[in-house]
Design a protein around this nucleic acid. Structure first.
Lengths: 163, 163
DNA sequence: CTTCATGCAAAAGATTTGCAAGTTC
DNA sequence: GAACTTGCAAATCTTTTGCATGAAG
């Protein structure tokens, strides 16, 4: 379960490449490996710098060209922060989780809930999709911020509306 | 249930503004209204143009300044397409739904599944968050693309891994 | 050898910001 | 009146591309 995990990621990536008629190169391998070792969230630029410091030759352009393929392979997940994706997360290092993001202070909490995964597979199946990954971020106000700025008088009726 | 919906959106927006010590202006009102009337997905630029053609004075900068507030108010949802958010969706016009995005051809299908909403509220509650909105996109290969480019020989073992 | 990949530097977009003038509270 | 907004244009940032050269199949 240790080495086979690496092999499986590589197989997934190579599979996507093959399907697009693209090639398995040194650079793409290095990028995959770097991502797999990446512990937390990262930006495209983070990844570029990581690779540089790891002595990889992969350039910025190559990283940008590889990212969508990694997403397609389900090896990397885009993340949404204040309404922008400028961040990704390795879907292959560590355990899987999704995020709760505080729109007030930016705090991020992770959650893991098997039921979501199951339902997602079901939805995909219903639509004939082969599932590769997902983005699932809940946005709200964290406990601290709720205390810090108590809601205005008339806000209750508003806040229990659909989310 | 017709007018009160509008009022509720306005209340939510004003609430967020108040919490930030910001003001309720003509422009922000026009932006909110335009968003509420927006039927489908839109980019920041779409919104700018919509407003222009509607005769609103709200400028590009103002729109960009308002969008995060609308997201915070849960009135607009960011959308993820090929790993980027360049698109939003009104969370207040029409019914609520999430998306299945084909990473091969870009096709978008919508799905609606009450169970997700319920679980999301539960997760938020567990973490003490007041839920304002969410991003939930499933990425995969649509049925057409699966036929078009049949998976490579060894891909099965790979494709039933976690998504 | 034919096709695809890469790096580089330039280009294109998208988003943000400084500022002076106009609004809201 | 004080504090916040706005539009504009300039400034930033991020991401994409064209091209010549170097690999992969």
């Amino acid at each position: 379960m240790r080495l086979s995990r690496n092999k499986m990621n590589e197989a997934r990536f190579r599979d996507v490449l093959r399907q697009h008629g693209l090639r398995w190169t040194q650079e793409r391998q290095e990028i995959l490996q770097s991502v797999a070792r990446c512990p937390g969230h990262f930006t495209a630029d983070d990844l570029v710098q990581r690779l540089q410091s790891e002595g990889s030759a992969a350039s910025r352009a190559t990283v940008y060209r590889a990212l969508p393929l990694l997403v397609e392979a389900g090896l990397v997940q885009p993340m949404v922060l204040n309404g922008e994706v400028r961040r990704y997360e390795s879907a292959v290092s560590g355990t899987h989780h999704d995020h709760l993001v505080c729109t007030r202070c930016g705090a991020i909490e992770e959650f893991q809930f098997e039921a979501f995964e199951i339902l997602q597979r079901e939805v995909a199946a219903q639509h004939g999709f082969r599932l590769q990954g997902h983005v699932h971020e809940l946005m709200g106000t964290c406990a601290k911020c709720q205390k810090r700025e108590p809601a205005a008088p008339d806000s209750d009726e508003v806040n229990n509306a659909r989310a």
